[in-house]
Design a protein around this nucleic acid. Structure first.
Length: 434
DNA sequence: TCTGGGGTCCTAGGACCC
DNA sequence: TCTGGGGTCCTAGGACCC
C-alpha cells in the first residue's frame, strides 16, 4: 500500500504563502523569459488558462479578469519543497521524492486508520508550511496517482466525484461497484503514463474512460502499444509493477538549456551562454559526485518564427571523464565552434553532460601533460569554488568566459515579475510589521 | 514583440561479431 | 527455386513524466 502526496498548484501556493493577498485570485507562474504558464491557481484554471499557454495569448486577462502573473522563482520553490517533503515523510516508513511537489510514501506496516493519518499529515503541512496538498492512497503507484487526481478534482469541482473522496482519497477502500463508477467517470488521459498521443489513439478505438482501458484485453494493449503501457494497465488492475525507490538514483545525464531573452546571432554571446550553462551543469555533476565522459552542445532558431531555420548539435568526447568546469567548458565551446554558423537568429541553446560515471571510478590518464597531481589540484580548486559559491551565493567565483553580466540585454533571461527569495537570501527575508 | 526546462524509458534498425 | 543463426552495441526517434 502506498500514498501519493502532491501539492496543489505548487508554485502558486508557494507565492501565496508570502503574499496572502493572492488568495482567492487568479494567479499563474510563468516559465523562464516569462514565456508561458507553468502553474495555475484554481481561479486561473477556471478562467480557462491551459498548462503551457503562452503569456502573450492570455495577457489580456490581466486587465479583464484581474489575473496576476509572476515569474518563476525556483530558489523559493526548491526550498519550500524541501520543507514540505520532510513533513510528508511522516506518513510512512519510506519515501520516494518523485518531483518538486510530489512524493510517494510506502505505508507498509503502518497501523491504524490510514485516511485519518493522511488528513493529519495534510493538516500539518498546511499549518507549518502553508501549502495545500491532496493525498491518494492505493495498492500501486499508478492507482495512487489516480487516487490523487480524484482527491484533487473532487475538491476543486464538487459533484464530480463522491464528496468523501475529496482531498484524501483511498481507492483501496472502495467496493468493486464504487471503484467501477469512479473509473468510468475518469478520462483515460488522466492516467499516469497515458499522454496525448496514446490517449488520442485509445479514443479512436472508443476507449475513453479509465474503466474502458482496464477492460481491454492485455494482449491488445501489449501488441498495440508495447510493454510500457501494459505495465500501466496491470498497475490499474492492482498488480504492482513499478517499485518504490527509497534512494534517489543518480542522474544519467545533466542538462542546462535556455531560451534566450532575445535572439542571439554572435559567437561571442553564444560562447558566454554556453560557458555559463556548463558551469551550472558541472556544479550539479560534482554535487552528484560523478564525472562526465561526453559533452553535447546544441543551438537552434525558434520553431515558431519564420525566417531561416537552424538547428544543430554535436557530441564532444573527453579524453578522460571529468567534472572540471574549465575542461568541460573547453569541450563545450569547441563543440559550439564546430556547429556555429553566422546569420541566424538563435532562440535557444544548451548543453548536456553525458556518459556519467561515479567519481571514485578513477582512471589514470596516460597523458604526460596532465600528471595526477595536477588533476588533484584541479579537483581541489573545484571543491573550493563550490564551497565559496554555496556560502556566498551563486557566481561569487566564476569562469571568465561566462562573462560578468549573465547576458543582461542579450542572451540572459527576462524575468520581470520575480518575487523575492524569501527563505534563502538574508536581504530578501520578508519584513513583518506590527 | 511574445511559445520552459530537465529528465526517463523503450524500440527499431544498422553495424558488427562468431 | 535457392542465400544461417544468434548475438551485442550503438543511435535516433518517439513516447512519457513534472
Amino acid at each position: 500500500m502506498l500514498a501519493l502526496i502532491d501539492a496543489s498548484n505548487f508554485y502558486v501556493s508557494c507565492e501565496r504563502v508570502f503574499r496572502p493577498s493572492l488568495n482567492g485570485r487568479p494567479v499563474i507562474v510563468l516559465s523562464s523569459n516569462d514565456g508561458c504558464a507553468i502553474a495555475r491557481s484554481n481561479e486561473a484554471k477556471a478562467l480557462g488558462i491551459k498548462m503551457g499557454e503562452p503569456w502573450f495569448k492570455i495577457r489580456h486577462l490581466e486587465e479583464q479578469a484581474g489575473l496576476v502573473a509572476l515569474s518563476a522563482n525556483f530558489t523559493l520553490y526548491g526550498d519550500m519543497s524541501d520543507r514540505m517533503m520532510s513533513l510528508a515523510a511522516g506518513l510512512g516508513p519510506t519515501q520516494e521524492i518523485y518531483s518538486i511537489d510530489e512524493s510517494f510514501i510506502g505505508l507498509h506496516g503502518v497501523r491504524g486508520d490510514l485516511v485519518e493519518r493522511a488528513w493529519k499529515i495534510r493538516a500539518r503541512i498546511n499549518q507549518w508550511i502553508g501549502i495545500p496538498c491532496g493525498i491518494g492512497i492505493a495498492h500501486t503507484k499508478t492507482l495512487a496517482k489516480l487516487a490523487n487526481h480524484i482527491a484533487k478534482t473532487a475538491e476543486r469541482k464538487p459533484g464530480s466525484y463522491p464528496d468523501e473522496l475529496a482531498t484524501v482519497c483511498d481507492l483501496s477502500r472502495l467496493g468493486a461497484d464504487q471503484l467501477r463508477d469512479v473509473m468510468s467517470s475518469t478520462d483515460v488521459g488522466e492516467v499516469w503514463g497515458i499522454g496525448r498521443q496514446i490517449s488520442t489513439q485509445l479514443k479512436e478505438r472508443g476507449v475513453t474512460s479509465v474503466q474502458d482501458f482496464v477492460d481491454l484485453p492485455s494482449s491488445v494493449v501489449r501488441s498495440t502499444w508495447g510493454v510500457v503501457l501494459e505495465r500501466t494497465w496491470r498497475e490499474l488492475r492492482g498488480e504492482p509493477c513499478i517499485e518504490l525507490s527509497d534512494v534517489p538514483t543518480p542522474k544519467k545525464q545533466i542538462a542546462c538549456t535556455r531560451s534566450f531573452g532575445q535572439p542571439v546571432t554572435g559567437l561571442t554571446e553564444l560562447r558566454e551562454a554556453i560557458s555559463e550553462f556548463t558551469s551550472r551543469a558541472a556544479e550539479k555533476l560534482r554535487k552528484q559526485r560523478h564525472l562526465a565522459g561526453q559533452v553535447l552542445v546544441f543551438a537552434r532558431t525558434s520553431p515558431f518564427r519564420d525566417g531561416p531555420r537552424f538547428s544543430k548539435s554535436v557530441v564532444v568526447p573527453l579524453i578522460r571523464p571529468s567534472a572540471d568546469t574549465t575542461e568541460l567548458a573547453n569541450a563545450a565551446v569547441k563543440g559550439l565552434r564546430s556547429i556555429y554558423e553566422p546569420g541566424f537568429q538563435l532562440a535557444k541553446a544548451g548543453m548536456m553532460l553525458l556518459d556519467l560515471v561515479p567519481d571514485n571510478f578513477v582512471q589514470a590518464a596516460l597523458d604526460w601533460a596532465a600528471p595526477l597531481n595536477d588533476q588533484r589540484d584541479r579537483s581541489k580548486l573545484m571543491r573550493a569554488m563550490d564551497e565559496v559559491n554555496d556560502r556566498f551565493g551563486k557566481r561569487t567565483v566564476l569562469l571568465g568566459s561566462s562573462g560578468l553580466t549573465q547576458g543582461a540585454n542579450t542572451w540572459g533571461m527576462r524575468q520581470l515579475r520575480r518575487t523575492p527569495c524569501y527563505t534563502t537570501r538574508w536581504n530578501e527575508v520578508p519584513t513583518v510589521r506590527a
